[in-house]
């Protein structure tokens, strides 16, 4: 069966939706994600929808459901990368995705999750010492 891959990264789980989802695939993703949150004890969920050309009420409802279920399981959800045309359409449709945190892109979404969870931002390397003894930027 077709599935959308879910990646685990530290205390987060990441999903990037790259296909035009039929309804069953959306339902499967909802189930898989909640199972993965529990299995990996994730504290944050990041869903990248930058490849989605539309979000109709069904997909919108799925995103809302995932955020609600994750919250009950003690995890925060951020939806990132919504295209401008999709945002305009979604609001006119009557769905402003209440209860779903959003961010412009993956990077901002990760920052938002870390800020919400109080996790320090990883810089990837130890700060180097400058000659005058202060850390360099």
């Amino acid at each position: 069966m077709e599935r959308i891959p879910i990646l685990k990264m530290g205390e987060f789980v990441l999903v990037s939706i790259q296909v035009d989802m039929h309804d069953q695939l959306a339902m499967t993703l909802q189930d898989d994600l909640t199972a993965q949150i529990v299995r990996s004890r994730a504290k944050g969920v990041l869903i990248d929808i930058s490849a989605l050309e539309i979000v109709d009420s069904f997909i919108g409802r799925m995103l809302g459901n995932i955020a609600s279920m994750a919250r009950v399981l003690d995890a925060e959800t951020v939806v990132v990368g919504m295209r401008p045309a999709v945002a305009i359409t979604l609001v006119e449709l009557g769905m402003a995705l209440p209860g779903v945190k959003t961010a412009l892109n993956v990077e901002r979404g990760m920052e938002l999750l870390r800020a919400t969870l109080g996790t320090p931002v990883e810089t990837g390397r130890a700060p180097a010492e400058s000659p005058n003894g202060h850390p360099q930027n």
Partner: peptide, 17 residues
Amino acid sequence: SLVDQTKLVTAASELAR
């Protein structure tokens, strides 16, 4: 336009469902 495409496709998706 991209916005008009998106609106029409979304409306079609709702009504087909």
